[in-house]
Design a protein around this nucleic acid. Structure first.
Lengths: 237, 237
DNA sequence: TAGATTGTTAATCGATTAACAATC
DNA sequence: TAGATTGTTAATCGATTAACAATC
């Protein structure tokens, strides 16, 4: 009977989305109920962590049984705001912007991109994935008029700040920023940065460290070897 | 004289990439040196956090002066592995995969996508952004032969696990996964998930919470009002 | 009932922030 | 010199993990 809304970390919110994916697969498989332990096993997480994340949604489970699958899915969706679809504007109709427009599933996850804005006169007036493209200077009045509070930035880095300013002027309260730029916005605006260059940083670092460790391990195996032939396969580097 | 390599969190690695962007702008502006305090000011971070992140790279600064700008940029690049370009394979030549192929800057950040793999017979044999497209069954032998250890997955979720398996079989040690799926891979493979659905979760949650708080605040202002006309503008909802 | 699982509190762990002596 | 900044250690904070009574 957990009914108190609890704090949840950003990482916890992302995990809830991951649980949602797993649960939908289970639903297709016909499973009636699921336990936190079961989810933890699939995703290789700690059961107590899964239990705590689920607890944040406020759903009540039954000891020994777990949670009714369909109900849990619904609670997670409600908690994350996915059943309350929010209209959104997109800035930047380049390759990434177009790709994002093609993500049909966003609508099921609470986001519906209704208009696109781009500086390129060749793109303005045309439609991409069924959405019309406008000049950016139309953005503020459009967003204000349609009461839109969610904006996606897929412009080059050089245009990102100006775009963010337009969006804030248009009443946007949450920004999903794909441009590799640091945005300065008022405190009442939520920003989620999806900077691929930042992400790549941790991956290249870890790969390099991993490869270095492997080379070192191989060296330790190979170095003190008397008859090198024996371990030749292990030391092809 | 910080020369000890220190542990750094995943968040710290991402921040280093952000510093790198800021520093390059400063370099263009002609600044000769920079202090951790200065970087912190620009990005609205704690000076001690920036100092600690920079310390992880092992560079030595001078009290009162800071760090020589060009040297610091180079140390960050070396630390993140960006000056040691790693070849990569890409799976999935859809809109997202094509967009990723168009990111010229990846090469400066240590990653060079050299081949693309896709199931679609219409795409195989053609080139996208100058890269040839092959059938996925060619992936393992190609990656092994070219000693490639980095793989990017931009397939639909349904193909992600099979693709990951092929990549692991091809000697890939680091996976950048854009498919909304949980990958099961051996321990010696690093996975970085770039799941947009997970990211959207935290944004929709925060936007909804923010809007709810605003509505509540407005209600508290409007509710106890005797002459409603006075505050009409503030309560248009 | 016995045993697995929930709900919740406590312990641990790690990252961030603060503090401060050394120093240019 | 005086003062800002580094390098580093200590304190704080928050998230994860462990523990366990309640319970179906």
């Amino acid at each position: 009977m957990a009914l108190q809304p609890r704090n949840i970390s950003d990482a916890g919110l992302r995990r809830l989305a991951a649980y949602h994916k797993v649960l939908q697969e289970m639903l297709l498989a016909g499973t009636p109920t699921v336990s936190a332990t079961g989810i933890a096993r699939v995703l290789a997480l700690e059961p107590s962590q899964v239990r705590k994340d689920i607890e944040a949604t406020g759903i009540a489970g039954k000891p020994k049984v777990g949670y009714p699958l369909a109900v849990l899915i619904r609670w997670i969706e409600d908690f994350l705001g996915w059943n309350n679809t929010k209209q959104a504007v997109l800035a930047g109709a380049g390759s990434l912007g177009s790709a994002l427009l093609g993500y049909q599933k966003f609508r099921q996850l609470g986001m519906d991109i209704v208009a696109v804005f781009d500086n390129d006169p060749l793109k303005v007036g045309r439609t991409i994935h069924g959405k019309q493209v406008f000049f950016p200077d139309k953005l503020p009045s459009f967003a204000l008029g349609a009461h839109i509070h969610l904006g996606v930035i897929a412009t080059p880095a050089s245009a990102a700040q100006a775009t963010a300013d337009l969006m804030v002027a248009g009443g946007i309260r949450a920004l999903w920023n794909f441009a590799p730029a640091h945005l300065r916005v008022p405190d009442f605006v939520v920003v989620r940065n999806e900077d691929l260059y930042d992400s790549l940083a941790s991956l290249t670092y870890k790969l390099e460290k991993r490869m270095a460790a492997e080379r070192k391990a191989a060296a330790e195996v190979c170095a003190p070897v008397e008859s090198a032939v024996v371990l030749l396969d292990a030391c092809t580097w």
